[in-house]
């Protein structure tokens, strides 16, 4: 929050006791009560709102995952115990490949975004002329609507009329199928994700870099360390906590990526399920095929994967911070 500075107007309002003139009575009692309980009075509405919208559906999803509910949630369903989980876990055709794709997508995208993001953040670190314009450019992909971004890349990567194949043609490389290729589709969507979200990593890392103190770097320079040594031995270790925050924030969203995948490949992640990640798979089971029991089991497993990876990262961060 370093960029924010409190507005000046606040000082103009003197905190003089307006309460003094107020008539005593029920109102005063209420105010005293409210002040005493302000902690929960303030926090409760938001927590109740989120709690009702989360805990109830989550409990329901858990329940559905133990039934054979399908077709309509209203239709009678039977309790089948862990059968859905067994079905899902032994499903080598859709579930495990989807797990693989989810992890590949997230892993590759994260590595690219963090490495590229660190390079760009280092480029931007020291002030330069035109800084303002570069910062605007960095912001644009970040705020663009993912569905629109998906459509944009669909045109650019179109095998016949896309600009990318046009460019490749100029240097003599034969046209590639990109999104419509069975082997290239996932990579292409990873590229889109990298384009859109590297800027976020840049912003986070840049905030981290600017909050570093200059002294260790300066001292290393005095001792004759070159730029690479200074980065890998001084800056990077100091930046590790911020890097992990960036990975955490970005990782959660990357695991749950849906918009660009559904926008570019449609239902089921394409006709060969090329880009079907867990989220796309679960969405399809729920809303395209109405297999609520199965989809709930997938979702619970998916949720466990997310929580698990976040827990690992948080542990790692604690270790690094010490």
């Amino acid at each position: 929050m370093s960029v924010l500075t409190p507005p000046r107007s606040a000082q103009s309002e003197p905190p003089s006791g307006r309460n003094a003139g107020r008539a005593p009575g029920a109102r005063e009692n209420f105010s005293a009560w409210a002040n005493r309980h302000r902690k929960w009075l303030f926090a409760a509405p938001a927590m109740i709102f989120v709690g009702v919208l989360i805990i109830f559906p989550l409990a329901w999803t858990l329940y559905l995952s133990l039934t054979d509910s399908q077709g309509s949630v209203r239709a009678a369903s039977e309790f089948v115990g862990l059968e859905n989980y067994l079905t899902v876990l032994s499903d080598g055709e859709r579930f495990w490949p989807a797990v693989g794709r989810t992890l590949t997508f997230t892993g590759v995208a994260l590595v690219c975004e963090v490495v590229l993001g660190m390079c760009i953040a280092l480029l931007l670190w020291r002030p330069f002329r035109g800084e303002k314009w570069v910062r605007v450019a960095i912001l644009l992909p970040l705020v663009a609507t993912p569905v629109a971004v998906g459509m944009m890349w669909r045109l650019i990567f179109d095998p016949n009329i896309g600009f990318v194949n046009q460019l490749l043609g100029m240097v003599g490389i034969p046209p590639q199928p990109w999104l419509s290729g069975q082997d290239t589709a996932l990579g292409t969507t990873i590229f889109m994700d990298v384009w859109q979200w590297t800027p976020m990593v840049v912003l986070i890392l840049l905030a981290g870099l600017t909050s570093l103190s200059e002294e260790p770097d300066e001292a290393a320079r005095m001792d004759g360390a070159n730029a690479f040594q200074r980065f890998f031995l001084i800056t990077l270790p100091l930046m590790m906590p911020t890097v992990i925050v960036a990975i955490l924030l970005r990782g959660i969203d990357a695991l749950k990526t849906f918009d660009i995948l559904y926008a570019t490949k449609g239902k089921g992640g394409g006709s060969f399920h090329e880009v079907e990640t867990l989220n796309v798979y679960a969405y399809g089971l729920s809303f395209d095929y109405n297999q609520y029991g199965l989809s709930s089991a997938v979702l619970i497993l998916f949720f466990m994967i997310i929580i698990g990876s976040m827990w690992l990262l948080t542990m790692r961060k604690k270790a690094v911070s010490k």
Partner: peptide
């Protein structure tokens, strides 16, 4: 509790909703 909302996959809430 509130921040959990950022972690949960949206699809798992959509069916009950």
């Amino acid at each position: 509790v509130v921040l959990m909302a950022r972690v949960i996959p949206g699809v798992s809430l959509l069916v009950p909703w």
